[in-house]
Design a protein around this nucleic acid. Structure first.
Lengths: 149, 149
DNA sequence: CTTGCATTTGAGAATGAGTTTCAATAGCAA
DNA sequence: TTGCTATTGAAACTCATTCTCAAATGCAAG
């Protein structure tokens, strides 16, 4: 966590930006989170904890955190961008059940490797990649079958 | 094209919905398009061609077309949903250059196969999947190197 | 062809995530 | 301190998308 924080600080420093109290609050909040969250989750969480940060600052800081590679944007679900930690974690992808909204994470090294190979072939420098499979999860499929669809 | 149209008609019929003049206009417009387009592209195109369709109907019909599997939503770029044809085309994925906005399409059967296998393993019935790689394209990377980044 | 009922449509209002504005504030270097 | 730049918050704004609702239309059964 301290390491991640330092990484963000130097990202900011490198472009003449400041590591302010508000940015620290937002950063720490993202580092504490597990799984997915969106800007509003963070804002409400910070508010509830008595931290004074504006919505605008949360949005602005999330952008900076994304640029720094500490977090990344995942599934664009119901019009909201949601984020998750990147730093120090293995990459994984997502399956999203369109019925119940459940997110299943998975990881496949062979897919990762194939992606790298494709980028190399096109001279493309990947910053981030995401794979999302939208569909119906096991449980919802079973429920549908029962009610005769 | 006629085949695709029929597919959509029966999708509608199956759920007691009507294949109206407006829905036909929007459907044909999407079938004529190549590559990516968004709701507004279609609306403006239809308007320019003298067709009387409202924005609301374009949005509504795009949703139906997506549900029917004729088109699918791709890259969520700059807050706009964009679409492309699915029916009768091979699946492919996208690389998006965050500098110039260029979209590079690619296709890899091994990735497709791995995706299918993962879904099977999780009992997940995939409706659609998309893989997007965000990064810097060859040309933009070269341009950056020159200007000393 | 008429009647009845459900679906669809368009115009404009509403929604809501995200961004911008701008004046006040804070960080930092000299 | 001084001066400059970056940052902040509140509120206004943007803009894609969705919703509302009254009018119009499609279709099935008489």
């Amino acid at each position: 966590m301290v390491e991640a924080r330092d990484r963000f600080r130097s990202h900011l420093a490198r472009r003449g930006l400041r590591y302010t109290a508000q940015r620290r609050l937002v950063t720490d909040a993202t580092l504490r989170r597990e799984g997915h969250y969106d800007a509003d989750d963070l804002y409400e969480g910070l508010r509830a904890a008595g931290s004074e940060v504006s919505r605008a600052t949360v949005y602005r800081t999330l952008g900076l955190l994304r640029d720094s590679g500490l977090i990344k944007e995942v599934l664009q679900c119901r019009g909201r961008a949601s984020y998750e930690a990147v730093y120090g974690l293995e990459h994984h992808d997502h399956m999203l059940c369109v019925e119940c909204g459940k997110v299943i994470e998975f990881r496949d090294d062979r897919i990762e490797e194939l992606q790298r190979r494709i980028c190399r072939r096109h001279g493309f420098r990947a910053l981030e990649h995401r794979m999302g499979i939208r569909g119906i999860c096991k449980q919802c499929a079973a429920a549908q079958k029962e009610s005769g669809d």
